[in-house]
């Protein structure tokens, strides 16, 4: 189950501005999906380790050797808004932690 308030909170976290209609529909759809998913809550998983990788690799490392960077005009080519030196954005009005 997920309620309207939670949907709005999650949408903010995800930087999605949902329309009112979307919020309503999303609340219903996500709830039914979550109800189905929550069946895994019935499993006994106490002693089970989580799997985040299916492959058993470790220490895949790259030698510290430089590779060619992109020419600046190529780096900026796909930008929706740029000046000659960089990617332009509206200045942040709030600062969040890095």
């Amino acid at each position: 189950m997920i309620d309207r308030e939670q949907v709005l909170h999650v949408a903010r976290l995800a930087r999605l501005r949902l329309t009112d209609a979307e919020v309503g529909r999303m609340t219903g759809e996500l709830s039914s999906i979550l109800d189905h998913i929550e069946k895994i809550g019935e499993l006994d998983l106490e002693e089970v380790a989580p799997t985040s990788h299916v492959i058993e690799l470790e220490n895949v490392l790259r030698a510290d050797e430089p590779r060619e960077s992109l020419p600046r005009e190529v780096a900026l080519r796909e930008a929706p808004d740029s000046d000659a030196t960089g990617f332009r954005v509206p200045s942040p009005s709030t600062v969040e932690e890095a």
Partner: peptide, 24 residues
């Protein structure tokens, strides 16, 4: 590390409704 935001505002502090340029 994060990239660097170069604020177009003269004071160097962060303003709204002004533009910044990101240097990666």
């Amino acid at each position: 590390d994060a990239a660097k935001l170069v604020h177009a505002g003269a004071s160097g502090r962060i303003h709204s409704a002004e533009s910044s340029v990101v240097d990666f």
